[in-house]
Amino acid sequence: MLSIKNLHVSVGDKPILKGINLEIKAGEIHAIMGPNGSGKSTLSHVLSGKGGYTVTEGSATYQGKDLLEMAPEIRAREGVFLAFQYPVEIPGVSNIYLLKAALNSIRKHNGQPEVDAMDFLTLVKDKVRLLEMDEKFLYRAVNEGFSGGEKKRNEILQMAILEPKLCIMDETDSGLDIDALKIVSEGVNSLRSPERAFVMVTHYQRLLDYIKPDFVHVLAHGQIVKSGGADLALELEEKGYSWVEDNQAAA
């Protein structure tokens, strides 16, 4: 589904990603861990098309197409979804309005007609229930005045409604209490399917207890320094990042 080859990315003159290689197949769950400032959010942003980054080398191919060539909204319509580490507040635009706009853009992109108003409401209310949110959130401005945890939940609500193919979740678990984490994880698990892949950026094993990854990668200093199975996360929790960083320095 997604093939990242030797990806180098800079902000201004400052190199941040220094040769990322990653293969993600449909149905897989990849966890990306790594110390603060190692480039995890940068990778998520570059994949979803945020401006301000320069790709100096390498490529990212998504479903056979050059992902980096596409405008951010085209990527989104093609099924790439980023759940933000810091979701943005959009005063004056209601949650439900944005959901409708987003869903209809995807449908238009796929040559389908606009969603029926009643069907849409049923779908949205279903997902609101799944994430145990209050329906009132639908009519509030996007993320405005939401608590940190509510914002994260709202990201997953959007994801559940838009049904993307590649779900990139940037620290969705940070700031969630244990109950919210369970609810969000169940929401994510309900979306798991052989056609869909997940990239989960996280600092904590806690999330991986609920959503078991197929692969764990450690990103440090702009490179993937170690990859392994779900066990790697446990090992990391025990030994800390310095263990892999030191390992790499020795090698």
Binding site: A71, I90, A102
Partner: peptide, 16 residues
């Protein structure tokens, strides 16, 4: 610009 990108990431084109 952050808000514009957020909306773009939700399928909305830049002008919209």
């Amino acid at each position: 610009e952050k808000s514009i990108f957020y909306l773009q990431s939700r399928c909305v084109d830049e002008e919209t």
